[in-house]
Amino acid sequence: MAAKTQIRKKKILMRTLMYGAITTALYAAVFSYASPITELFARGGFYAALPIATVFVFSFAHGAFSSSLWSALGIEAITKQAAKRKTAPSPRPIQKPRARLRMSA
């Protein structure tokens, strides 16, 4: 059990370092050329795709890094499903009484 926990911890640490390196590289790339990139991304029109694509890429790398970082620090969610509450029963349309065949005619 302890060995398994150790392996898991090592995996999380490796993932944190990997995504941390990717995230740092991404930020370094943008901020090394901050002026031309900011100017290019603010040209409007079809250039609008550039900031949008950038934030998607950053949120993937940085999001994965942050998630691993909290796990590496031992802060993880308690696995539980959202509690279900009693709700009102689904309303049904008013039912008409069925037509009966009278046999005693």
């Binding site: 930020y27 943008v30 901020f31 901050a34 990139i37 900011t38 991304f41 603010a42 040209r43 409007g44 029109g45 250039y47 609008a48 900031p51 949008i52 950038t54 934030v55 950053f58």
Partner: peptide, 13 residues
């Protein structure tokens, strides 16, 4: 907003 060229990507990041 981005089509109007108003995003400052440095601040956003």
């Amino acid at each position: 907003w981005a089509m109007h060229g108003m995003v400052d990507i440095r601040l956003t990041l």
